Simulated assay, not measured.
Amino acid sequence: MGLMSRHYESIKVRAEDGIVFVQMHRPQANNAIDDRLIAELGDALSACEAQATVVVLEGLPEVFCSGADFDEIRGRFERGTIQGQDPEPLYELWRRLACGPFVSVAHVRGRANAGGIGFVAACDLVLAEDVASFSLSELLFGLMPACVLPFLIRRTGIARANYLTLTTQPVSARQALDWGLVDACEADSANLLRKHLLRLRRLGKDGVARYKRYAAELDDSLAAAKPKALAANREVFGDADNVAKIARFVRSGKFPWEAD
């Protein structure tokens, strides 16, 4: 596959028999989301749209994805720049996982937080290690999971999404399974993935693409929510007070309610 000859810095890619494994790989940043990660994942998905029947999205053993790159936000703040990352490329990346002409599978080990939940909720199937955890921590810093919510509500409903947003507390893989965020979990998630791929590899790409297109036509909620989600994201990340809280947290490790 042409995909295998491409050089990436933030992801690792391998392929076998129509299945592409894409691993987010920023261990130095706890798999935080920056512009390069978004761009490289987008490039890989473009190739997958033409070549892959199944796309497996993975993280690191201890952290699937920790959300926005706070260190990058701190750097912009200290340079005097408030407005940060354009949210549209990330929203479109999640929409492609949800609606693209392949089966998207999130294989979650460790911690999935904030924007990491966006990746999880966007995928067709979510398989988790039973010690994985899922959380939305944004409100601790005056933010909100604006772009995550359309994908999360689509999976869990408004009540569960509201609970995760307001409590900011992590829930276990078993709880996430009960709520519909996770489809299956086991102690040996690699074996769980293997069992699912034994069946998924029997699917034909044309049939999968046709089904995904039809499913997207039945539910256009992601497209309808996009303008509001982008506007809300830009509002909270354009708030100087919120950005200052993030910069302080990165420098000192102190949450907004903790004194200097």
Rank of each mutant, 00 (worst) to 15 (best):
A15E: 15
N233F: 15
L177D: 02
R154E: 08
A52N: 04
T53W: 02
E129K: 01
H107D: 08
M144S: 10
C123S: 14
A68F: 10
E129A: 00
A259W: 09
A122E: 03
V54A: 10
G2E: 11
E72V: 12
Y91F: 12
V56H: 01
D260W: 06
G84M: 08
R160H: 11
E49C: 13
D260A: 14
D219T: 07
A29F: 12
E49H: 08
G253W: 12
F151A: 09
A184G: 02
L193V: 06
G80A: 05
G67A: 08
G2T: 11
R210L: 10
C147V: 15
G110L: 00
L200Y: 09
C185M: 02
E186V: 01
R74L: 08
E217M: 10
W257T: 12
P61D: 01
I246S: 03
M24P: 01
R201I: 13
E40V: 13
L140R: 00
P256D: 05
A159T: 04
R210G: 05
S46G: 15
H25I: 07
A232W: 06
R202A: 11
I33H: 03
L60I: 01
A50N: 15
Q85C: 12
A29M: 11
V126K: 06
L127E: 04
D34K: 01
V108C: 00
R111T: 06
H107K: 09
D43S: 10
V63R: 01
L197G: 04
L90V: 12
L200G: 06
V250K: 07
V182A: 02
A176D: 04
S137W: 05
R6P: 06
V56F: 02
G142C: 03
L45S: 06
R213P: 03
Q85A: 13
